[in-house]
Amino acid sequence: MTAAAATCVDLSVKLGSLRLKNPVTVASGTFGYGTEYAHVFDSTLLGGVFLKALTMNPRPGNPPNRICETSSGMLNSIGLQNVGIDRFFSEKEPNCQRIASAGVTIFANLAGQTIEEFEQLIDHLETTTAVHAYELNVSCPNVNKGGCQFGQDQTLLRELVIATRKLTQRPIIVKLSPQVTDIAAMGVLCERAGADALSLINTFPAMAIDAQSRRPVLNTIAGGLSGPAIKPIALRMVYQTAQAVSIPIIGMGGIMNATDAIEFLLAGASAISSGTANFVNPNAPVEILRGLEAYCIEHCVDRVEQLIGGLQV
């Protein structure tokens, strides 16, 4: 393959009615609202940004300790701390607008405690062009009254998807909880209820203990496990769900580099997110993007979409 052809890899991917300029996105809660990494890399290079969870009212979040390291991973119990929808508009939305105008797809991550709250959030966000799609956070394991029950209760989940689907032309993406017996079945349920795409996976409920003090390390005792430790499980879940649904999947869970990202694409994800990796190497998303392009060149793939679901079994 010639050098001229090398620059011609089509990295764009289709995600329902959206086209992302490339499949590399950053996971909700690991990238703030897009400004925090401004001094580290140019976020306009990304295919998409998933914003930190939003709720109608500001939420203070959980008391510290909120994070700790575990074998090849980390626990977090941030507790959905966020500024609430009003301050999102006054403080964060202008920057989202700036990134969006550079061709980055912006996903608002919604963390309602009731169906009504999800509906209200969408109502508000419909007024801005800085947001292109909604990701329903039905799987955050951190807040007792939060998403947990939506992600685990089939009736509630179906009701939520149907209710939110009616309110907007924009894609509705459901972020699935890994804390279910059959994640593919949950994906099918969401697809039938009208979801346009699925994100998987969110973190696993887990805990750490300090043997010296005989106390839990996190204030909330349990938190969500992310990072390389969960990658093989995430990969299996993406694969199984991709086999069962025909809507696109955004794959995540322990993606640290381009090879990890390619594995998720081969398993059936149409796009990927890096989360914990952004803390380890803030340049990870850009390195993933470059590595993906290099892989395509090396393997004579001229459209990255050709990799999606390309696993040979």
């Binding site: 809660g29 690991t30 580290v40 930190k52 510290p64 994070i67």
Partner: peptide
């Protein structure tokens, strides 16, 4: 405090203040 990103994004490193929350 324990830190994740170090850049203000993860909200993992907070302490509680008397006048402005975390």
């Amino acid at each position: 405090s324990f830190m994740g990103c170090g850049l203000g994004a993860c909200l993992g490193c907070v302490l509680n203040t008397t006048d402005a929350g975390y």
